[in-house]
Nucleic acid binder design. Structure first.
Lengths: 191, 191
DNA sequence: CGCTCACGTTAGTGACCGTTCACGTCCCCT
DNA sequence: AGGGGACGTGAACGGTCACTAACGTGAGCG
C-alpha cells in the first residue's frame, strides 16, 4: 500500500508538470499549450480541470501553504519544549524543501501573479506558518522580541530554501544534515 | 561631493525604476510602457537607451554579478586568514542585500528570462563569486570538501538574501547584526 | 544661419497567448 | 439500447505587448 496513489489523476499530473515548468521559466514564461504538451494533451484541455491559468497557480500555491502550515501546527501540537519544537520544524521544512524544490521556487517567485483573493489567502497561511516559528523562537529565548524572531524565521527559510540553487549538483542525503545543522546554528546564534 | 552623482542620467533612472518594477511584478509582468511611465517618458523612448527589454535586464543582472564578484575578489585579495575573510564577505554581502533588496530579488528570479549569451555570462560571474566563498570555507576547515562548501555558500546566500521577505517591516540597522550573526553561525556550524 | 545628433512622441504591426466555441468520442448507468 | 456526462480536439477571437517607423524639437557648433 504505497503512500502515493498509483493512479495519478489528470489534475495531479497537470499540477506536477505545471510546477516544474513554472519553476524553470516562471508563470508568464509558460503557455497553456506548453503545460498541455507536458502532460500529453494539448492546449485548452486544461480548462476541463481548472477555471483558468491563474486558478491553476492558485491551487498550487494554496496547497503548498496549507501543507506547510498543517505540518507546522502538527509539530507544535505534539511538542511542548520550544527548542525541541524548533528541531522538529527544521527537520520538517528541510525535508519539504529538499524533496519539492520546484514548489519552493514557485511559491516565492510567483506569488505576485496570483489574483487578489488567492494571494491574500496564501499570504494569510504563510503568516500563520511564520507565527508558529516566531512563537517557538520567542519561547526558546532565541529572539529578543517578535520582530527579531520574524527576521530569524525568514532567514532560516531562506537558508533551507536554498536547495533549488545547490541541488541538482548535490544528493539530498548529503545536503540534508548540513542544512539542518546550519539552520539550527543560525537560529540559536547569539547576536 | 556626494558619493552618488547629483545628475542621474536617464539610463540610470531607467535601470533603477525597472529594477523596482521587475522586483515587484516580475520581468514579464512589467511592460515597456510601464517602465517608461515610471521615469516620466512614455513607451518606446527606452529604445534610445537600450537595444531591447531583454537587453535592459541583461545590463542589470550583469551589473549585479560584476559588483558582487568584484567585492568578493577585493576582500579575498586584502585578507589572508580565511576566517577573517569570511567575516568580510558576510559583511559585504549582507550590506548589499540590505541596501539593494530589489536587485537581489530580480537577480535570482529573472535569470531565466535572459537571452542565452547574457545568461551564460551571469552564470559564469556567479560561479566565480561562489568560488571565492568556497575557497575560503575550505581553507577555514568549515567544509569537508568543495561540494559541501558549495551547499554552505548557497545556504548562506539564501539566509542573507532573505531581506526582501522580512524587510519593509524591519529597519536595516536592526536586521544587519542579526543576519551577520546568523550567517556566521551557520557557516561555522559543525555537522 | 543651418547641419547634426540626442532624445522624444504617436501610430502602427505582427506575434503570442489566454480563453471560448462547436464539435467528436468513449464510458457508464438505467 | 440509448442518453448523458467526462474529457479531448482544432479553429477562431480579442487583447496585450515588444518593437519599428515616421516625424518633431531643441541644443551644440562650424
Amino acid at each position: 500500500m504505497p503512500s502515493v496513489p498509483v493512479t495519478t489523476s489528470r489534475r495531479e499530473q497537470i499540477l506536477v508538470e505545471a510546477a516544474r515548468l513554472f519553476a524553470r521559466h516562471g508563470f508568464h514564461g509558460v503557455s497553456i499549450d506548453g503545460i498541455g504538451a507536458a502532460v500529453g494533451v494539448s492546449g485548452p484541455a486544461l480548462y476541463r480541470h481548472f477555471p483558468s491559468k491563474e486558478g491553476l497557480l492558485a491551487e498550487m500555491l494554496v496547497g503548498i501553504s496549507e501543507h506547510l502550515l498543517a505540518g507546522g501546527q502538527e509539530r507544535a501540537a505534539e511538542t511542548t519544549d520550544p527548542v525541541e519544537l524548533l528541531e522538529a520544524l527544521i527537520a520538517f521544512h528541510t525535508d519539504f524543501a529538499l524533496h519539492q524544490p520546484e514548489l519552493i521556487t514557485v511559491q516565492d517567485r510567483d506569488l505576485a501573479n496570483l489574483p487578489d483573493a488567492a494571494r491574500h489567502r496564501v499570504r494569510g497561511l504563510q503568516r500563520a506558518y511564520v507565527e508558529v516559528w516566531v512563537d517557538a523562537l520567542c519561547r526558546a529565548g532565541f529572539a529578543a522580541n517578535e520582530e527579531a524572531a520574524r527576521v530569524r524565521a525568514h532567514a532560516a527559510f531562506g537558508l533551507m530554501n536554498s536547495t533549488p540553487r545547490s541541488a541538482g549538483h548535490t544528493r539530498p542525503d548529503v545536503a540534508a544534515p548540513l542544512l539542518v545543522a546550519m539552520a539550527r546554528a543560525a537560529l540559536h546564534a547569539r547576536v
